[in-house]
């Protein structure tokens, strides 16, 4: 397994794909800050907050992971290397876990690369950020867990459909759908909490109202339009989807309320998708 891991890492870092994705992310990191710098007409640049640009890398991570994982793992099926690996004596679970490790390591490197480039540029060009550096590092750590979760999800799809083209199509569409769903859910829950704020202390207890006042969101309180299972499901997606997490990182000043749940959900998604993927992959025949 260690030999396989070493070979996989070598394939990843010597291939064109990894460097293309790195290049894309570097350009992305540069472009938003430089664009803001070029199009803003203000004498005092130190008053422009560019926190949002720091988390665009995480928001687009779904798409990046879709492309990277399906090209890296999916092309093994098209080229037949996966059969060679089996013949060489590796177990199917071993192959799956190696792919997961390599893809998540590469994507975490890309994530941190994006963050540091964006951070350096917003620091040099503007110099005003809401978060302190330690909070940013904590957020990136949660984001890294989220990256692993997304990678595990995309790898599950790739290993089940076993074709590069179909995998890349399905994964990209999935990440776009998740992104749209995130925006819809965040908007809906914001409306929900505005409704609670307007209703005031009659509906919710005093301590819950205090939480709502402080964090602008409180969990598990029904309002007139949103209640019961629907609310619970929406709150689950609100916390568990990486894009929703990233969108919330850029909106709040400190660690987001319920960040522990984000961590737990990320780990749980990784475990569940890996389990499903590995079991299905073991059952399926390879041509």
């Amino acid at each position: 397994m260690i030999k396989l891991l070493r070979a996989e890492f070598a394939r990843c870092f010597t291939g064109k794909l990894f460097w293309l994705v790195v290049l894309f992310n570097v350009v992305l990191a540069l472009s938003f800050n430089v664009l803001t710098y070029a199009t803003t007409k203000s004498e005092d640049f130190s008053k422009i907050f560019t926190d949002k640009t720091l988390y665009i890398g995480l928001i687009s991570m779904g798409l990046t992971a879709a492309v990277f994982v399906s090209f890296h793992a999916g092309s093994e099926f098209d080229e037949g290397t996966i059969r060679n690996k089996l013949i060489a004596g590796n177990t199917k679970t071993g192959i799956y876990l190696c792919d997961l490790a390599v893809c998540s390591a590469a994507l975490i490197i890309i994530q941190y690369l994006y963050f540091f480039i964006a951070y350096a540029f917003s620091y040099i060009l503007f110099g005003a950020l809401h978060h302190s550096f330690s909070v940013m590092m904590q957020l990136q750590l949660i984001g890294a867990l989220g990256t692993i979760a997304v990678t595990a999800f995309m790898l599950m799809i790739t290993m089940i459909v076993r074709s590069r083209t179909i995998a890349v199509t399905v994964c990209m569409i999935a990440s776009i759908v998740f992104f749209i769903a995130c925006i819809a859910i965040i908007n809906e829950l914001e409306e929900h909490s505005m409704e609670l704020l307007d209703a005031g202390p009659e509906i919710i207890s005093a301590e819950k109202y205090a939480v709502l006042d402080k964090y602008s969101y409180v969990y598990g309180v029904d309002s007139e339009n949103l209640f019961g299972t629907e609310l619970a499901v929406k709150e689950f997606f609100y916390d568990s989807l990486l894009q929703s997490q990233a969108l919330r990182f850029s909106d709040e000043r400190s660690l987001p309320y319920h960040w522990e749940f984000m961590v737990i959900y990320n780990i749980a998604i990784t475990l569940v998708t890996t389990l499903i993927g590995a079991v299905t992959f073991r059952r399926l025949d390879l041509k």
Binding site: L63, V67, S70, F71, G74, R164, T165, V168, T169, M172, I176
Partner: peptide
């Protein structure tokens, strides 16, 4: 095949 899907979607985004 795969690259053309990726480029098309990335382009439209």
């Amino acid at each position: 095949r795969a690259s053309s899907v990726v480029w098309s979607i990335v382009f439209i985004i």
